[in-house]
């Protein structure tokens, strides 16, 4: 007889929240919004995740980390599903996570669609330097250290910094 999981979805959600983002270890996969659903169907645990960017190289690590975490908690009957709809958006990043990003030196994405214009709308509007809080900052490159970040420089403290792009 297959072992029946003793965990509730809330418990599973809680310990999966301990998994950090492999690239930005100060925030978890739940704060980032990558973990979408935890379901239990006939004692099988079904985890649903969604990629931030289509080609995000961290997805495989997310899956492996989730696998380890489930096994660590004696959950052996599980499935990890990846969905693409609704498409991930930076609006799902929690308020606490935004503060953590800022402390880590990454400017969090601005809310809503302010920087989502298509042609020639540069993202220079009010991106605050995470180091000195100045608004006098400039876009250096739309593509930074990872696909999800742009590279900015602060004109006050002169430090370059990453900005989490709005999508």
């Amino acid at each position: 007889m297959p072992s029946v999981t003793k965990h509730t979805t809330e418990e599973i959600w809680r310990f999966l929240s301990e998994i950090p983002d492999p690239e930005i270890p100060v925030i978890s996969i739940t704060e980032l919004g990558v973990l979408r659903k935890v379901d239990i169907e006939n004692s099988k645990v079904i985890i649903t995740i969604t990629p931030t960017y289509s080609g995000c190289p961290a997805m495989k690590t997310f899956e492996d980390d989730i696998k380890f975490k489930l096994q660590e908690n004696n959950i052996l009957d599980f499935e990890i599903k990846t969905i693409h709809s609704p498409a991930w958006t930076t609006d799902w990043i929690t308020e606490e996570a935004r503060e953590k990003l800022r402390k880590f030196g990454i400017a969090p994405p601005i809310r809503g669609s302010e920087d989502k214009g298509v042609l020639f709308h540069s993202e220079t509007k009010n991106i605050e330097c995470p180091n000195c809080n100045s608004n006098n900052t400039n876009l250096k490159s739309q593509f930074g250290s990872t696909a999800c970040k742009a590279l900015y420089q602060c004109e006050e403290c002169l430090e370059p910094f990453d900005y989490f792009k709005c999508i």
């Binding site: 990629p51 960017y53 289509s54 693409h84 709809s85 609704p86 498409a87 991930w88 958006t89 989502k116 298509v118 042609l119 020639f120 709308h121 739309q142 593509f143 696909a147 792009k165 999508i167």
Partner: peptide, 12 residues
């Protein structure tokens, strides 16, 4: 819908 978000950046 997902790819559109990405190609918007590529286009810009």
């Amino acid at each position: 819908a997902k790819s559109l978000k990405e190609v918007t950046y590529h286009l810009r």
